[in-house]
Amino acid sequence: MRNGVIIALAAALVTAGAAAAPAQAAPTHAAPATTTPTQAAPTKTRQAPSVTAREAYLVDTMDGTVQFAKRESRRVPVASLTKVMTAYVVRREARLDDVVTITKADVRYATAGGAATAGLRAGERLTVRDLLYGLMLPSGADAAHALAERYGPGTAKFVAKMNDAAQALGLRDTRYANADGMPSKAYSTARDQATLALAALRDPVIASVVKTPKRVVGKSALHRGHVWRNTNDLLDDGAVGLKTGFTNQAGYCLSFAAVRGGRTYVGVVLGERSDKARFATARKLLDWVSEGAASEGATGGVAEGAGVTLP
């Protein structure tokens, strides 16, 4: 991850907790910078928290300082965090009012793989706006497949666009193989996923979607009714996103953003041992960095000694 990327992307967030109005036009993004994030010198003896996740990363988006890092550059599967990139690419390829027809292949793909679904049925016609909620809240692999088939066109071409976007964002240790994160040879890192989270949150539509607890889509002549609930329990603690993920191969994963003490932090937890543990780890990291800032009497700066890298 590049320090310039973090600061440039974070500047567009302004206040991460503010409501973001949906827009039709997809925003442009700053080109990746070439500098690295800064590590605050550990001149104090404040103990870093014990983290059970295999990989973890936490960044202060205000100045790009790394607050916590554990195996942040190790290439691992990231499960449904993949869908953050899917949403990112869709926002650059589609209009929110485009209508997508759900096919038998979309439904069969999700159910055959045992993936989470948005409960879509063949023949339904939904807008891209609605499908983004179906993609991100219940983590619907059926929604991911439908969007990839439409905006590749075809899944292979869509995945190529995902990898092109990863390269443009400077995600050097990321490779996608599908649009949903089902087990494959795909990989990423906690550090790359933090950079992607910032880029995604800069999009006002994605930022609005990922902090929504529940989305109700009323029945119409084009589709049946749907109620989608966000799988991100961290929203109950004031988080403003972003995405959960799980496969047996990847473990329990979480990409998150939250405001503490007037500062926005973005973090990633990968390979955690349980659903409950991933949220507990995220809360622990956020509480730790907040307490550190308070103990140092910070008024807009990070706590001295907060930048910690674990082997």
Results as ranks from 00 to 15, higher is better:
residue 117 T to V: 13
residue 74 R to Y: 09
residue 244 T to F: 08
residue 239 A to Q: 03
residue 17 G to P: 00
residue 149 E to Y: 00
residue 209 V to A: 13
residue 36 T to Y: 14
residue 127 T to I: 07
residue 50 S to A: 15
residue 54 R to D: 12
residue 198 L to G: 15
residue 25 A to T: 13
residue 79 A to V: 11
residue 294 A to R: 15
residue 98 D to H: 10
residue 101 T to A: 07
residue 264 T to S: 06
residue 296 E to D: 15
residue 125 R to S: 15
residue 20 A to D: 03
residue 124 E to N: 07
residue 109 Y to E: 12
residue 15 T to L: 10
residue 250 A to Y: 05
residue 92 R to C: 00
residue 141 A to C: 04
residue 169 L to Y: 07
residue 98 D to R: 08
residue 271 G to R: 05
residue 236 D to H: 11
residue 191 R to W: 06
residue 2 R to P: 00
residue 82 T to A: 03
residue 20 A to E: 04
residue 161 K to A: 06
residue 276 K to G: 06
residue 203 D to C: 11
residue 87 A to F: 05
residue 114 G to R: 01
residue 70 K to T: 02
residue 25 A to K: 13
residue 63 D to S: 11
residue 306 A to V: 05
residue 280 A to N: 13
residue 251 G to K: 05
residue 204 P to M: 12
residue 175 R to H: 13
residue 258 A to D: 09
residue 52 T to L: 11
residue 33 A to C: 06
residue 168 A to V: 00
residue 237 D to R: 15
residue 102 I to Y: 00
residue 172 R to C: 01
residue 68 F to Q: 02
residue 11 A to S: 14
residue 109 Y to T: 04
residue 164 D to N: 05
residue 213 P to S: 08
residue 311 P to L: 02
residue 275 D to A: 13
residue 156 A to I: 00
residue 162 M to P: 00
residue 107 V to K: 00
residue 269 V to L: 10
residue 263 R to L: 14
residue 206 I to A: 01
residue 182 M to R: 08
residue 74 R to E: 15
residue 98 D to W: 05
residue 228 W to K: 08
residue 103 T to C: 11
residue 200 A to E: 13
residue 219 K to P: 11
residue 303 A to D: 12
residue 192 D to P: 12
residue 310 L to F: 02
residue 235 L to A: 07
residue 244 T to E: 08
residue 30 A to K: 06
residue 83 K to M: 12
residue 96 L to C: 02
residue 76 V to H: 03
residue 64 G to A: 02
residue 37 P to S: 09
residue 277 A to P: 00
residue 173 D to P: 05
residue 193 Q to K: 06
residue 109 Y to V: 01
residue 225 G to K: 10
residue 23 A to G: 11
residue 301 G to M: 07
residue 274 S to C: 04
residue 277 A to L: 08
residue 275 D to R: 09
residue 209 V to Y: 13
residue 86 T to C: 05
residue 152 G to K: 05
residue 107 V to G: 04
residue 115 A to M: 12
residue 287 D to F: 07
residue 43 T to W: 14
residue 80 S to T: 04
residue 158 F to N: 04
residue 162 M to E: 10
residue 297 G to S: 14
residue 297 G to T: 14
residue 309 T to Y: 01
residue 172 R to M: 02
residue 161 K to V: 02
residue 289 V to C: 10
residue 113 G to A: 12
residue 253 C to P: 05
residue 257 A to P: 04
residue 54 R to N: 14
residue 139 S to C: 10
residue 160 A to S: 12
residue 83 K to G: 11
residue 78 V to Y: 00
residue 288 W to N: 10
residue 161 K to G: 03
residue 6 I to N: 01
residue 225 G to V: 10
residue 65 T to H: 15
residue 45 T to C: 09
residue 1 M to T: 08
residue 179 A to V: 02
residue 107 V to F: 05
residue 246 F to I: 08
residue 190 A to D: 06
residue 189 T to R: 04
residue 175 R to N: 04
residue 86 T to R: 04
residue 52 T to P: 07
residue 100 V to Q: 01
residue 36 T to K: 15
residue 63 D to R: 12
residue 175 R to C: 01
residue 132 L to H: 05
residue 47 Q to E: 14
residue 91 R to A: 03
residue 38 T to P: 01
residue 199 A to Q: 00
residue 206 I to S: 02
residue 302 V to Q: 09
residue 276 K to V: 12
residue 88 Y to Q: 09
residue 114 G to M: 09
residue 164 D to K: 14
residue 261 G to W: 07
